[in-house]
Design a protein around this nucleic acid. Structure first.
Length: 542
RNA sequence: GCGCCUGUAGCUCAAUUGGAUAGAGCAUCUGACUUCGGAUCAGACGGUUUGGGGUUCGAGUCCCUACAGGCGCACCA
């Protein structure tokens, strides 16, 4: 429909040349009184033509003839909006379309043929995933889903580093706990990993090797076993949320394959780096950044920046059209340097979309829980999933704009069952399934023969909402905003529940009953597809 | 001190990217089923969009400023 209106206005360009320079926008008005689509084009033109907006609108309409089969009414309203009212029959076209496409309804081909990489979680294996990682994990996976729905071929990627200082400390933490088990008195440093999982790993090593590891170094078996155990747990946690990364990219391979040394040479050749105080610095100030930063320490060890840049270069070289980086606000300061460097090396950083999500504040028994991996004062993602379930976790993290500093009230979440919107959606789906089961016994079949009988307010409202789904998916994907899907689905479910309260299938005249049956099957399909994007199940019974 | 994010109803959050009368859920109050799932529906209450300036036909949204909170500001990642 939008396409139709755009084409009509395009034809008008010959008569009103200024139209070419204005952005033609059609939007769905907030209020139904303002029609099904609306444009502010007259107001935009008014400025250029130095005329009254309503006059311009009148002028435009006098020059256009609309197809009566599509548009039933056009009006000028407010300061100069032009509102379009669809022919009601047009709305019902969506039902056969949904019934035909089923699980694929809502998908589009707009970006088909394009490849995207979504990097998310990317926590180093130093401890179990926390609730904070959970937000990252869920958002990342859902964005990947959304991109797939609009045609991208998506790789989900996890970047990690098992070489640096963090991992050395991890290994040594395990070693010290192990020595404790041997009865040695050790002084366990405060800035080491305090969590019980370290003791568990030490215990495991003790069970297997007894005291044979007494003289092993932290970097050897202690680190290796710790990394493996913890990474296995991380993968298990993610998989319990149905999150499975295709690629685990180890920073170490960047050294092994020479990417790091190559990059250093390039910086040198392009005169983008210099030596000072025994370290190598990147000339970020010449790239518009605040200050130069060290890329190789005086010890000869690179800082994280260098591999970060090399890593992103591999993403370009791997041929992605879209590169999504998702991380928490604690890392927000690092990416501008990386992007500046990439730009200086002539990579098209328009392809890189950096998404920053704000932190989750955990509230338990009315108090804020301060979290720290090091101090082992945190709530793990596993605990959260155990307490509220996978669907609630996924829905909850998806339902808010990523820039919101969201609160997670754990006490409420635990007792939450009828208060949580995810149940509201699932209930609507299960209810429709139940109706279908019941109605089938009455020898009714969904029919699209008499959809024009769907003309009550409740039915029209549902039809309008069904008509919006494809665009919602596209908007959510293009803006990387999964929460729009949540709000849309809640809206749709509410419209269904209202329909259910006032309009019946059983007991209605057969043609109406069968048209309504087709309608609710369409609603069920859209609910399920929306929940699928979010990674939430759509149960047939609850 | 500097940078990024945030501030909207009692609480948790939206607002079609600058549009029309700022909307939902929860909480509170009042109502609604002898038949398809009451985990539901209808209604009421609730706002100086943190304060103050500015930009324009039009501002929750953009600019300036003050205040409050979160996150950063390494030769850690």
């Amino acid at each position: 429909m939008k396409e139709y209106l755009i084409s009509v206005f395009k034809e008008l360009e010959t008569q009103i040349p200024e139209l070419k320079e204005t952005q033609l926008i059609f939007e769905i008005p907030k209020s139904e009184l303002h029609g099904d689509l609306s444009t502010n084009i007259a107001m935009q033109l008014a400025k250029k033509l130095r005329k009254n907006p309503r006059e311009v609108a009148n002028d435009i309409l006098s020059k256009i003839k609309f197809d009566d089969n599509l548009i039933s009414k056009v009006e000028i309203a407010g300061a100069g909006f032009i509102n379009f009212f669809f022919n009601p029959n047009y709305l019902t076209y969506i039902i056969p379309k949904i019934l035909d496409k089923k699980d694929n309804f809502g998908k589009s081909e707009k970006y088909s043929g394009k490849k995207a990489n979504v990097e998310f979680v990317s926590a180093n294996p130093t401890g179990p995933l926390t609730v904070g990682h959970g937000r990252n994990a869920v958002i990342g996976d859902t964005i990947a889903n959304l991109l797939e729905w609009v045609g991208y071929k998506v790789d989900r990627e996890y970047y990690f580093n098992n070489a640096g200082r963090q991992m050395r400390v991890l290994g040594d933490s395990v070693r010290l706990r192990y020595l404790e088990l041997l009865g040695e008195k050790v002084d366990f440093p405060e800035d080491y990993y305090q969590g019980d999982y370290i003791k568990d790993i030490a215990q495991k090593l003790f069970n297997e090797y007894s005291d044979k590891l007494k003289n092993e170094s932290a970097e050897g078996i202690f680190k290796e076993v710790a990394e493996k155990e913890i990474f296995d747990d991380i993968k298990k946690t993610l998989s319990s949320l149905n999150i499975n990364h295709k690629i685990f990219y180890n920073e170490k391979s960047l050294y092994d394959e020479g990417n790091i040394s190559d990059l250093l040479k390039v910086f040198e050749q392009k005169n983008l780096s210099y030596h000072k105080d025994g370290a190598i610095w990147l000339k970020l100030t010449s790239l518009g950044q605040e200050q130069d930063k060290v890329i190789v320490k005086s010890t000869g060890e690179p800082t994280y920046r260098l591999p970060d840049i090399a890593y992103h270069i591999t993403k370009f070289n791997r041929g992605y059209d879209l590169i999504v980086d998702l991380f928490g606000s604690d890392h927000a300061a690092t990416y501008p340097d990386v992007l500046a460097a990439l730009r200086a090396l002539d990579y098209d950083t328009e392809k890189v979309k950096v998404l920053i999500h704000q932190f989750v504040t955990i509230i338990k028994d009315g108090e804020i829980v301060k979290m720290s991996t090091r101090k082992a004062n945190y709530i793990t993602l596993d605990e959260l999933i155990d307490e509220v379930g996978k669907d609630v976790v996924r829905y909850f993290f998806n339902m808010r704009n990523i820039s919101s500093h969201m609160n997670f009230d754990l006490t409420l979440a635990k007792k939450q069952s009828d208060e949580n919107p995810v149940f509201y959606l699932q209930y609507a789906h299960a209810r429709i399934c139940s109706i279908i089961r019941t109605v089938e016994n009455e020898n009714l079949k969904p029919s699209i023969e008499n959809l024009d009988l769907l003309k009550t307010e409740e039915e029209k409202d549902l039809l309008k909402k069904l008509n919006r789904f494809e665009e919602e998916v596209l908007m959510a994907a293009e803006n990387f905003e999964a929460h729009r899907i949540c709000f849309y689905l809640e809206d749709l479910a509410a419209a269904f529940h209202k329909f259910y309260t006032f309009r019946r299938i059983l007991g209605s005249e057969k043609n109406i009953a069968e048209a309504r049956l087709a309608l609710i099957i369409a609603v069920k399909t859209v609910l399920k597809n929306g929940l699928t994007i979010l990674g939430v199940s759509a149960p047939e019974k609850m």
